[in-house]
Design a protein around this nucleic acid. Structure first.
Lengths: 355, 355
DNA sequence: CTGTTAGCGCGTTCAA
DNA sequence: TTGAACGCGCTAACAG
């Protein structure tokens, strides 16, 4: 097993040149250093024949840079989201020549420390710290000694490093606009609301979505017909909330704060023999995989996890390269909002008599 | 930025001993080598004071082993599965002191080669090669020079390394048994069947599930009342298939080959005003997240992705350690079947008049 | 018991 | 143009 790797020294021997010559040739600076064409050819040939590949560990030790990123997330339950973000980050990293270590903390701070340390020990060039919750948290120490980017984490105060988060505020506006521009005015909220402070989760997404919704409604002289602040955004809760609304009449439209709530809402509406969107229009958030499969297809504002991951990796590599070029200047920073596109399907119907 | 790391030499200087002494003490073999208690204390103290952490890259170069695993998958669309497998692998790896590089090939063979090479360049100690399709494929070369495990991949012939796959055959048996033991005999198949060769996907899962189902049915003197071999196992296909069955009467029971098909089947049954499970019993496979949220809860045979990932990582570390201990003996091998547990919910009802 | 020495594989001076 | 020598940080022989 494990047949020995060929080293640069072996290539040099095979090509009958010195190691440094081989090194220069293979790093593409042969012509630059005016090394004879025939020598270069011999080196390249030998390398190819022997199947030489530079030992990345050695290069890492020598240059201090390992072309490696760390992706550390807390990924609690909502694993699908994490998967997409990781995927986006990995792809972007690969395109820029980086590999990525992935670690999960399960929200455990001690574990997070250990993971971060292990990553730094392995000389990662940069760190993406991701959360699946988007709530305010404090920053682990040590993130200042290595380039880092925060993904889906909102920090209180300026973290001094780039932050990538979805544009939940605009998403809220877009969801509300989709309803209002269909002429719907009797709008009920399930998940949070009706007031700006009626939020039961630590997620900042809830606040921002609500804020965006209320902003658009009030701009049209409207207010939510009702609102339910819910702690757990799952189908059964959605069902119960919708059922309560339906008990006292048929609403024109319901905004669900995520697709799982919407699934329960669908069940409640349909079990009463009502039709979506003929009787009730529904709009939601997340665009999880079920949204497209529900009948009718659910119109929802997508959380672009993959794009967010990609964005974070790109920003991180930018930061790393900036750091290399200008070691003493402060690195890039700022909050990067990733747009949440509205996926229009078939759960909203314009009110008759309106355009 | 990037304040300099503390090196072993600095610790040794601070403790006024030689580097080798410091090395021995910090690797826990101080007492073993009978180094004076006070010297040991000085070293430990200095290390703690300076915040010393060994440079893993250097250790990797020196020892040839990096405490690092590679997880390479092709993860096509079905990303949630990949996420769970990765998670399981990462957790198990962490518990045994390994970090993991994650890479995705999107099914691109060239990319797979490049990724694998990049991993090997970084001196990973072992490789998990995973697929989300479980179909027969050929093995990339080079997997023989590094310990490796195949995850969710069935290879034609003996790959000579451990393989982890779900026990789909038994899963098929269990699904059929759940129905038969409820006294149901009018059983329709959606996804594959009715005959053993009626399969439209490359997935080996379809074959094995079908085989298990037919085995149990025939053991009870039964055969499928109907079967539909379907290419794409998605809700619309499930809806159409179920609708066709319902057009010619109400079936006692339907076996769906995955949960997404079942979702469509639910929609078809319920849109006709029929009840699950009072009129029709349904059983399925995968236990995807929607299964628990459907109404009524879907009884389904779970694909334990996380367990599979964990299993693969454990086997890989076993193989690595075996290799270290007995470098010339052949490594472990064999097919490891991971049980697929039946998640009983509320979509099956025993036929009245039976127990 | 402790210190010195020699690499792991590579990139980079500095001379020749 | 090329080759010899040094060191990244650490471990393992080998002396002392």
């Amino acid at each position: 097993m494990a047949r020995k790797r060929v080293t640069l020294a072996q290539v040099a021997a095979e090509a009958e040149v010195a190691v440094s010559t081989a090194s220069l040739v293979l790093s593409g600076r042969g012509t630059d250093m005016r090394i004879s064409e025939k020598a270069q050819a011999r080196v390249r040939d030998a390398a190819a024949r022997l199947g030489y590949r530079p030992n990345a560990v050695s290069v890492g030790l020598r240059k201090g840079s390992t072309s490696t990123l760390a992706f550390v997330s807390d990924s609690v339950a909502s694993s699908r989201l994490a998967g997409e973000m990781i995927k986006g980050a990995i792809e972007a990293a690969r395109d820029r020549g980086y590999m990525v270590f992935v670690g999960e903390t399960g929200g455990n701070v001690t574990l997070e420390r250990q993971l971060l340390d292990a990553m730094v020990d392995r000389q990662v060039d940069g760190i993406i710290l991701a959360s699946m919750l988007t709530h305010g948290r404090s920053l682990p120490t040590g993130l200042d000694s290595t380039p880092a980017v925060l993904l889906n984490i909102s920090i209180d105060g300026d973290p001094g490093i780039p932050v990538v988060v979805p544009d939940e505020l605009q998403a809220g506006r877009d969801a509300a606009t989709a309803l209002v521009s269909a002429g719907l005015t009797d709008i009920h909220l399930i998940g949070a609301g009706p007031g700006l402070r009626d939020v039961r989760t630590i997620s900042t997404a809830a606040h921002l979505r609500l804020q965006g919704i209320l902003e658009v409604l009030s701009a049209h002289g409207l207010a939510p017909a009702s609102g339910r602040a819910i702690n757990q955004w799952l189908p059964p809760e959605g069902f119960r909330a919708a059922d309560a609304i339906l008990a006292s009449g048929t609403p024109e439209a319901i905004v669900c704060f995520n697709d799982r709530l919407a699934m329960g809402v669908y069940q409640a509406i349909q079990s009463r023999g009502l039709s979506i969107p003929d009787d009730v229009s529904v709009v939601s958030f997340d665009d999880s995989s079920i949204a497209a499969w529900m009948r009718p297809g659910l119109t929802t504002v997508a959380l672009p996890h993959r794009v967010m991951g990609k964005r974070a990796a790109d920003l991180l590599v930018d930061a790393i390269e900036h750091d290399r070029a200008h070691p003493d200047e402060p690195g890039p920073t700022g909050v990067h909002l990733v747009p949440m596109p509205l996926r229009e399907r078939d759960s909203i119907r314009a009110r008759p008599g309106r355009d």
